[in-house]
Design a protein around this nucleic acid. Structure first.
Length: 740
DNA sequence: GGTGTCTTCTTTTTT
DNA sequence: AGAAGACACC
């Protein structure tokens, strides 16, 4: 391959892009609007740095948010500078710092074979802690605890610091759980995602000599999607850049959509203050979309108050208007999308791969999937239930984790009775007790279980068997390939027979999935010569669904708006544009969150190159049936860009009496359900007759709380008294129909 | 200790 | 609507 000259590298850039690539005078902030050639600038900048010998490839640190983005960038750099590209430190924040931790973590008491817990594992540990500490999960779910802990970690707060700032009761409890959670992770030699960032910060701060080594090495640091960095990430890059001060961050505050995960737009907005001598480049020419699409997207996002004003422009033509499809219900919405796809394929010679159908929540993919399948249009779904999150896959991975890291109690717990070997709660508690007494991990206790008198002889035998299998593979793991090892292990424990017991399609899927996993492991070994089991597990736990999305496959792509960031398609549908769904109900009250929803719309709309279609349904079945009001974002699209198909539908007092089950008297449903919010509350007075989809008709006896947390006591005619949370009850107010 | 049924709870987005 | 947990029965 002929390598590019410096002029080749610069030649394909517009003046601003070129300036940004050539600039070599310290910190750089590149504000890159959607479709402005951001990736091109980063890749060309890196190529330029290498070609002009500002730095060696291995002195460059380039951080992204998905493996896919990193892989694609590496590929593009390779075409510019050749194989040197492979030596660049390029990857996601999490994978790069996991790698550094594996190498250096012993300094902070971390052994190389640590396990990475995903959020499900994390939540499992938290659940266990909460059970043991007997902190009721009523107003404090493991889920909220998890997110609080993660948020704390993202902000670099350990359990101690968090406890100090814990003012209210809930936070104090979280602090307690957090502290115990940390102990367990440490004992299990495990790290969660947030630890992969927090631990390196700690390590670098406590070992300046080590920090010095990396500071010296990374003479050029580049960060993609800087608007999505959290505090820990910005601290990390600041630490590493402190010596050379050669840091280049790229991002777009309008595309900040991960604040719920701890991302802080303040990082990009405050970069100038943080690096006062920084040079700012603005990429405002969009190469992707038509004027219409850009105008529509820009008009919507301009409703946000907290943003840097900017004007994206394009030399492209107006193109087609944005189409809005107003549909009576979600079924019709799906049919509408399908019909459009068929029309465009027939008339405009579009391929299935030209289309993306975007939605706010994964749950919406079901209906769409069904519609496309019926129409015989090939498709791929990105996201949803991810491969590595399937139960059977996690089971197998748990076995492998224990083999690699015997201290991993949580994983051992997962598989100790899978397949069933007669180990129930009693035996388990004896085993745990044994571990506690001896100060051992669960695996340590398992070794002794064969001689433990408090455990039933029969169980002892089974535990002994399990122990010997795990031991066998633990000692052979360095000699055989990951795939081979897994195959043997699964044979030995009888996992296949266990899966095959279930002969339903679902069970067959499971077998297929595990086979697929084994294939993946074998492929991994051929790809990475040094690919041992540790490496495989490490990689697998940091994989996301978008990473495995194959854009060469010719199918319609379905995914959430979040997953679509960074991608582009000729035709884009944004579906489910209804108040409460997009923007999502829980983000409706908080202006900051609402602005984030709006940015999400902006991100979705700017994925489109030629055509953008919006759709909303006036009735959407979100269990029980809720009615849709078109999203405010639709109103924010200037009418000159918009062409509407379909009509407004008012569902209301149009239900026939038969719709209400088991009532001998005729009642009429009123326009809406009073599932949440204040507006409906006034009708929900004590004494009011209401209808519940399951319990039928009843009378309100009592009411407490307010807003979403309103609790009701209802006396149902058929099923008696029930306590209900208004938020979930979906009650309908019944009025006596005078005419009957 | 396993299995089946009933009840309760959950619905955001994901490295 | 569907999953996970609780509970009861085997």
């Amino acid at each position: 391959m002929a390598l590019s000259s410096v002029e080749d590298i610069l030649g394909k850039l517009n003046p601003v892009q070129r300036e940004a690539v050539e600039y070599n005078g310290g910190p750089i902030l590149i504000l890159a609007g959607a479709g402005s050639g951001k990736t091109r600038v980063i890749t060309h900048k890196i190529a330029y740095i290498i070609a002009t010998r500002q730095a060696k490839p291995w002195e460059i640190l380039a951080l992204t948010f998905t493996n896919k983005a990193a892989g694609e960038m590496k590929e593009r750099i390779r075409t510019l500078v050749g194989k040197g590209a492979d030596l660049i430190w390029m990857g996601t924040f999490h994978s790069i710092f996991a790698r550094i931790l594996r190498k250096e973590g012993e300094r902070i008491g971390l052994s190389r074979n640590f396990t990475i817990y995903d959020e499900e594992d994390q939540q499992g540990v938290i659940k266990g802690v909460m059970k043991e500490l007997d902190l009721s999960a009523q107003e404090l779910t493991p889920r909220t605890v998890r997110s609080r802990i993660n948020r704390a970690k993202d902000a670099l707060l350990g359990p101690g610091a968090y406890a100090e700032g814990a003012e209210d009761f809930i936070a104090q409890r979280v602090a307690q759980i957090y502290s115990e959670y940390e102990k367990r992770l440490q004992a299990a030699n495990a790290l969660d995602f947030a630890d992969l960032l927090l631990k390196p910060v700690r390590m670098f701060r406590s070992h300046p000599d080590l920090l010095g080594v990396y500071q010296k090495q990374f003479s050029a640091i580049l960060v993609d999607e800087y608007q999505d960095t959290n505090h820990a990430q910005s601290v990390l890059t600041d630490l590493l850049a402190a010596r050379h001060r050669n840091i280049c961050v790229v991002g777009d505050d309008d595309q900040s959509i991960y604040s719920w995960r701890g991302a802080d737009v303040g990082n990009i907005l405050g970069f100038e203050q943080n690096y006062p001598n920084c040079k700012i480049f603005r990429l405002e020419q969009n190469y992707r979309s038509t004027k219409t699409i850009l105008g529509a997207a820009g008009a919507v996002v301009s409703h946000n108050r907290r943003r840097k004003p900017k004007t994206l422009w394009t030399s492209r033509g107006d193109g087609e208007v944005v189409t809005l499809m107003k549909m009576p219900d979600e079924r019709e919405e799906v049919l509408g999308v399908v019909r459009k796809i068929e029309t465009f394929m027939a008339e405009d010679k579009r391929q299935p791969r030209d289309f993306a159908v975007l939605y706010r929540t994964n749950a919406q993919s079901r209906g769409l999937e069904e519609g496309l399948r019926r129409a015989g249009i090939p498709y791929t779904i990105v996201g949803g239930i991810r491969f590595y999150e399937r139960r059977e896959i996690k089971d197998v991975l748990a076995y492998l984790r224990v083999v690699v890291n015997p201290q991993d109690d949580f994983s051992l717990l997962r598989i100790i009775n899978v397949p069933p070997r007669g180990i129930g709660a009693v035996t388990l508690s004896r085993l745990k007790e044994l571990a506690r007494q001896q100060g051992l991990s669960l695996f340590g206790a398992l070794k002794l279980a064969g001689e433990e008198v408090s455990i039933l002889p029969e169980k002892r035998k089974r535990l002994k068997q399990l122990n010997s299998v795990l031991k066998k593979y633990g000692s052979s793991r360095k000699k055989v390939s990951p795939g081979e090892l897994a195959r043997g292990l699964l044979d030995d424990v009888g996992y296949w027979e266990y899966l095959e017991q279930d002969s339903t399609p679902k069970g067959e899927d499971r077998v297929e999935n595990v086979k697929e996993l084994l294939r993946g492991m074998e492929e991994f070994s051929t790809l990475h010569a040094e690919g041992n089991l540790e490496a495989f597990l490490a990689e697998v736990s940091l994989l996301t669904d978008i990473d495995s999305w194959d854009d060469r496959k010719n199918g319609v792509t379905m995914m959430t708006l979040h997953a679509a960031k960074g991608l582009e398609f000729p035709v884009v549908f944004i579906t489910g544009l209804e108040e409460g769904l997009f923007p999502l109900a829980s983000n409706l009250d908080d202006p900051a969150q609402l602005e984030e929803e709006r940015r999400l719309f902006y991100v979705g709309a700017t994925r489109a190159e030629e055509r953008l279609l919006l759709s909303c349904a006036f009735r959407r079945r979100r269990f029980g049936g809720q009615y849709g009001i078109p999203s405010r974002f639709i109103d924010e699209v200037p009418t000159e860009y918009l062409e509407t198909e379909g009509e407004d539908v008012t569902w209301g007092a149009a239900f026939s009496p038969e719709d209400i089950t088991g009532t001998e008297k005729t009642y009429q449903r009123i326009e809406d359900e009073y599932s949440m919010g204040e507006e409906g509350d006034f009708r929900l007075k004590v004494g009011q007759t209401v209808h519940h989809s399951r319990f039928g008709r009843g009378r309100i006896l009592g009411k407490s709380g307010f807003g979403e947390m309103t609790r009701l006591v209802v006396d149902f005619e058929k099923s008696g008294r029930k306590r209900l949370l208004l938020k979930y009850a979906h009650l309908q107010v019944l009025y006596e129909d005078e005419d009957s």
